[in-house]
C-alpha cells in the first residue's frame, strides 16, 4: 500500500520553476533513495511533502490524506529530518525529546527511552545539545523523528556528520524499521551508502524525475560491464573496437549487453588474442546514476 503519493508536484520560486511534475510513491516497508545533484530540488520536494513550502500544483497524499486539505491528519504519522537536525541547542537532549513528545498524544516515558536506545544516545542524553558533536545531533534528530512512531520517515541527508559506525547503525535501524512496514524516503549525496540497503531509487535532476525504479532494474538497465584478461592489451589498438577501456597490459573493461558479448569474444579469438578471464560486473548505484544523469558528477 502506498504511504506517500506525490503526483505532478509543481513548485515555483517567483517565475523560476524549481519542480516540474514530480511524481513518485513510497510504499509500506520500502526504502526509497532520493538522489540528485545539488540544486536539483531534493530538499524542496521534501519541504513540500512536509507542508513547509506551499505547492503550486499537483497533489501530495500521506496515508490517504491530502496535505493541502487535511494537513494535521496527514502529518500525524510522519517523522522527518530536513537539512540539519532541528533541535534546541540550549536544552538537553532529553528536554528536546520530552518537548517534542509532549506535542503528540500519549507518548510515554518508556517510548522516549526506547528511541534513545535505538539511536544509541543513552550516555549523553542529559547533556546540553550545544555540547554535542554534529553526529550526535544527527542521532538526536533521528530520535526526534522516531518519537511519534511514524509509518513514514523522511530523512534529508541523514548521514551528514555521522561516523562510519553511526552510518552502520543508521543502516541497521532503517532496515529494521522497513521490516516493521515503515516507508522511508531518504535523500543523500552518498549514493554508495544507500545502495546497500535501499530497494527503490528515484533520480531527480533540474526539478524533474528522470528515473524511478527498483534498484535491481536500475542496475540492469545500463549496459553490463565485463572485465577481461588477455595476453597483451596493445594488440587491441589495431582492431579499432568500440566501448573499451584499457586498464593495464593485461586487463581491459568493456560495456556490452549480454547478447553481444559472445560476438565480441569471437572477434578477439579470431584475432588470435589469448583470453584468460571474462568477469561480469554489475554497476554500483553511483555508476548507474552517472550513466543516466549524463555523466554529471554528483
Amino acid at each position: 500500500m502506498a504511504i506517500l503519493k506525490v503526483a505532478n508536484l509543481n513548485k515555483r520560486f517567483g517565475k523560476k520553476e524549481v519542480l516540474k511534475a514530480v511524481s513518485f510513491e513510497v510504499n509500506e516497508g520500502e526504502i526509497l533513495a532520493f538522489i540528485g545533484p545539488n540544486g536539483a530540488g531534493k530538499t524542496t520536494t521534501i519541504k513540500c511533502i512536509l507542508g513547509l513550502q506551499k505547492i503550486n500544483g499537483g497533489e501530495i497524499t500521506i496515508n490517504g490524506f491530502d496535505i493541502k486539505k487535511d494537513f494535521v491528519r496527514a502529518i500525524t504519522r510522519v517523522g522527518a529530518i530536513v537539512e540539519a537536525p532541528d533541535v534546541y541547542m540550549y536544552l538537553s537532549g532529553m528536554d528536546n525529546l520530552r518537548l517534542q513528545a509532549s506535542l503528540y498524544k500519549n507518548i510515554t516515558d518508556e517510548e522516549i527511552y526506547r528511541v534513545i536506545k535505538l539511536v544509541g544516545l543513552e550516555n549523553r542524553i542529559n547533556d546540553k545539545v550545544s555540547k554535542y558533536s554534529l553526529g550526535m545531533r544527527q542521532r538526536l534528530g533521528i530520535a526526534i523523528a522516531l518519537i511519534n512512531n511514524p509509518n513514514l520517515l523522511i530523512l534529508d541527508e541523514p548521514t551528514n556528520g555521522l561516523d562510519p559506525e553511526g552510518i552502520k547503525d543508521l543502516r541497521e535501524l532503517l532496515i529494521n524499521l522497513a521490516k516493521q512496514r515503515v516507508g522511508i524516503l531518504i535523500s543523500s549525496h552518498n549514493l554508495s551508502e544507500l545502495e546497500s540497503f535501499c530497494n527503490k531509487v528515484c533520480i531527480i535532476s533540474n526539478g524533474s524525475i528522470i528515473k524511478e525504479s527498483s534498484i535491481d532494474t536500475l542496475k540492469n538497465l545500463s549496459e553490463v560491464k565485463y572485465r577481461i584478461k588477455i595476453d597483451d592489451t596493445k594488440k587491441l589498438t589495431k582492431l579499432k573496437l568500440e566501448g573499451i577501456k584499457v586498464i593495464d597490459n593485461n586487463y581491459f573493461e568493456v560495456y556490452k549487453d549480454e547478447d553481444c558479448i559472445s560476438e565480441f569474444i569471437r572477434v578477439l579469438v579470431n584475432n588470435k588474442i589469448d583470453i584468460y578471464e571474462v568477469i561480469k560486473e554489475s554497476l554500483t548505484l553511483e555508476e548507474a546514476f552517472i550513466n543516466i544523469a549524463g555523466g554529471k558528477n554528483v
Binding site: L50, V72, A80, E83, D86, L103, Y104, I144
Partner: peptide
C-alpha cells in the same frame, strides 16, 4: 533562524 521551525511545523497542528 535556528531552523527549529521545521520541526515545529511538521507537528500535527495547523
Amino acid at each position: 533562524n535556528k531552523g527549529t521551525i521545521k520541526s515545529l511545523l511538521t507537528r500535527p497542528y495547523k
